[in-house]
C-alpha cells in the first residue's frame, strides 16, 4: 500500500472513531450498544432523541464543514502555491460571516430560509474575488489583501453590531461569530449540505490543474491549463463551501490552514493527492474540536467551537511562520 493510500485510510478510520465518540459523549454518556439501539428505537425513546435528533445532525455538520474547510484549504494552497492560504486568512470566512449575519439578524431568513447560505455565498464570493484581485503579487500581497478584506468585512460586522435592534441582538451576533454547532438540527444540515456538496464537487475536479501549477503559471498554461477557468472554479467552489459553512456554524478558522499541511508529506506534496486526505483530516479535526466543546464547560458556559479551532490552530500558525522562511520559494 502506498503512503498516500495509508494516510487516507488512517484519516478515515480516525474520523470513524471520532464520530462514534461524538455520538457517545456529552452531558448524557451513551454506550455503543445504547447508540446502536437508539437508531432502532421508536420516536419517543430518550436515547433516540439524543442520538438521532441532537447529536447526529451536529456530527454530520461537523464532518461536512470540517471536510469542506480542509478541502478549501488544500485547493487554495495549491492554486496560490502558498502554504498560508486558508479561507479565514484570505478574508473569505469573514465575507461569508458578514453575508450570513446580515441574513440572520435582519430578518431575511424569516422570509426565505436559504437567505443565510445564499448571502453567505455572496459575501464569500465578494471577499474571495477582492483578495484574488489585489493579492496577485505573491505571498506578501496575498496575505495583505486577505487582511484588508478581513478588516473590511470586520467593519461591516461591527456596523451590524452597531445597528443591531437591541443589546441581546448584538450579543447573539457576537456568540454566533465565535462559531458553534450547538443546537443545530437536521434543518441546518438540509440548508447547508447541498451548497457544500456542490462546492466540493467543483473543487475536486481541479486536482490535475493544481498539479500542473506546481511548475508555475506559464508552464501550467503551456501544459494546456486554462488558468482563468481554474481561478473561477476555485472561487465558486470555495465560496459555496465557506458561504454555507459560515451560514450554519459561524466563523471557524484554521481547519483549512492546518489540514493540508498534515497530509502533504505523506502524499509526496502532490497537490491533487492532498485534496481527499485533507478533507478527511479537516472533518476529523472539527469533529474532535466539537467533542471538546460538548464536554468542556466553564461555570456551565459552553466553550465555542471556534475558540477550540483557534486554540489548536494559532500555535500551528506560529510554527508555520517560524518554519516558512526556510521552505518557501
Amino acid at each position: 500500500m502506498t503512503r498516500a493510500a495509508a494516510i487516507t485510510l488512517i484519516a478515515a478510520l480516525g474520523l470513524l472513531l471520532l464520530a462514534a465518540a461524538s455520538l457517545a459523549a456529552g452531558s448524557v454518556w451513551l454506550t455503543p450498544s445504547q447508540i446502536l439501539h437508539a437508531f432502532a428505537a421508536d420516536k419517543t425513546d430518550l436515547a433516540r432523541l439524543i442520538v438521532v435528533e441532537l447529536r447526529l445532525p451536529r456530527l454530520v455538520l461537523a464532518m461536512l464543514i470540517g471536510a469542506a474547510l480542509g478541502l478549501c484549504g488544500a485547493v487554495l494552497q495549491g492554486l496560490l502555491r502558498n502554504p498560508l492560504a486558508d479561507p479565514a486568512l484570505l478574508g473569505i470566512s469573514s465575507g461569508a460571516a458578514l453575508g450570513a449575519v446580515i441574513a440572520i439578524y435582519f430578518g431575511l431568513t424569516a422570509q426565505f430560509a436559504y437567505a443565510a447560505p445564499v448571502l453567505g455565498l455572496v459575501g464569500a464570493l465578494g471577499a474571495a474575488g477582492l483578495t484574488f484581485l489585489f493579492g496577485r503579487g505573491g505571498t506578501l500581497s496575498l496575505i495583505l489583501a486577505g487582511a484588508a478584506v478581513s478588516s473590511l468585512a470586520g467593519a461591516g460586522l461591527s456596523l451590524a453590531l452597531n445597528l443591531a435592534p437591541n443589546a441581546s441582538g448584538a450579543y447573539e451576533i457576537m456568540t454566533w461569530l465565535m462559531g458553534s454547532l450547538t443546537d443545530r438540527s437536521w434543518d441546518h444540515v438540509i440548508l447547508a449540505a447541498p451548497f457544500m456538496v456542490a462546492g466540493a464537487a467543483i473543487l475536486l475536479t481541479t486536482g490535475r490543474s493544481l498539479d500542473a501549477l506546481s511548475l508555475g503559471e506559464t508552464q501550467a498554461e503551456s501544459l494546456g491549463i486554462d488558468l482563468n477557468r481554474l481561478r473561477l472554479l476555485v472561487l465558486i467552489g470555495v465560496s459555496l463551501c465557506v458561504g454555507a459553512a459560515s451560514a450554519v456554524a459561524g466563523a471557524i478558522g484554521f481547519v483549512g490552514l492546518v489540514s493540508p499541511h498534515l497530509v502533504r508529506p505523506f502524499v509526496g506534496h502532490q497537490p491533487s493527492r492532498t485534496l481527499l486526505p485533507s478533507a478527511l483530516f479537516g472533518a476529523a479535526l472539527l469533529t474532535a474540536a466539537d467533542i471538546g466543546s460538548h464536554l468542556l464547560r466553564y461555570n456551565g458556559v459552553e466553550i465555542k467551537l471556534g475558540v477550540f479551532t483557534a486554540l489548536l490552530g494559532a500555535p500551528f500558525f506560529f510554527w508555520l511562520v517560524v518554519r516558512l522562511p526556510r521552505t518557501a520559494p
Partner: peptide, 8 residues
C-alpha cells in the same frame, strides 16, 4: 523554471 512544491 521552478518547482514550487517538493515533488519527487
Amino acid at each position: 523554471p521552478r518547482c514550487e512544491w517538493p515533488l519527487p
